[in-house]
Amino acid sequence: MGRFLLRRAVNYIVLVFLAATGVFFLASVSLHPEVNYLEKHPQPPLASVYTQLHAFNMDPRVPVTTRYWHWLTQLVLHGNFGLDWQGGSVGAEMGRRIFVSTELLLVATILGSVGGVAFGAWNALRQYKPSDRASTLFSYLMLATPVPVVAVTLRTLDNKIGSPIQYTGMYDPRVHGALAVAGNNIEHLVLPTLTLLLVQVTLFSRYQRSTMLDVLGAEFLRTARAKGLTRRQAVLKHGLRTAVIPVMPLLVYNIVLLFTGAVFTESIFGWHGMGEWLVSSIGYNDINSVAAVGIFTAGIVLVAGLLSDVAYAALDPRVRT
């Protein structure tokens, strides 16, 4: 088992390395960071722009392979992701953005998972009752609605009903004082969290509902009832626990992937997290940032896969060997 896992891990690392290399080459060839400087008026001479970019390892006059080697050695030997087009550290920026994304996603994922499981189980228990039909219809609607539509609709509703909830950015820069900032920060969390919740709860509840339905007819539940448990006890203690197992890896997988997947939510509500970076780094033709995003995204797919395997093994005794 250990050797198998090790071989898998090595394979994954090779895959991430190849993906990162691919992204770096692709970004270096297709993106033109000099555009950012040529937009300035008066236009700086191209030679000095290139000299500036040379310091950031983005000089188009240097062969791509040389730049790649420099980037790779810096990354592997010093853990240095290089500099962005304005000379800032990409690694530091990544740290900041991971923090921002975590703050945005933490509440949403926890509430989304718990809510999705609870909602799905509740619907399974009330199969074919009006509430179940209504939520089935609702989930069809939600799953067909792209996230930007959800986000913008919530924003518009917020404006129309004149609610005082602010929604742009992490917090209002005019607010001062630690406590006031924290409160304002939470206020800014409301709409993006609601957006994420609506999408996640519907998605997870569909899976939970179907696994729960499979479990509800099982023999062991009848045994539990025969043993003298009430229906409620039996369903909660034996039914739900069994039904959560197949959904758990999915939850873990989705939650981890959300770190780069919250592109819309972050962009529309103005949070400068990892998802927004994915779009903005390309917009600025920022090669080193794009490469960093590439590594992060590839890495997170692997982490998600491994964690969901672990979650499955931890929950399901049949998988453990």
Partner: peptide
Amino acid sequence: LEFMLVVPSFLIIAVLSPH
């Protein structure tokens, strides 16, 4: 197949889009 799963698809299509 595993490689394709790891490769950040959104990023790659976005980077290629000017072409």
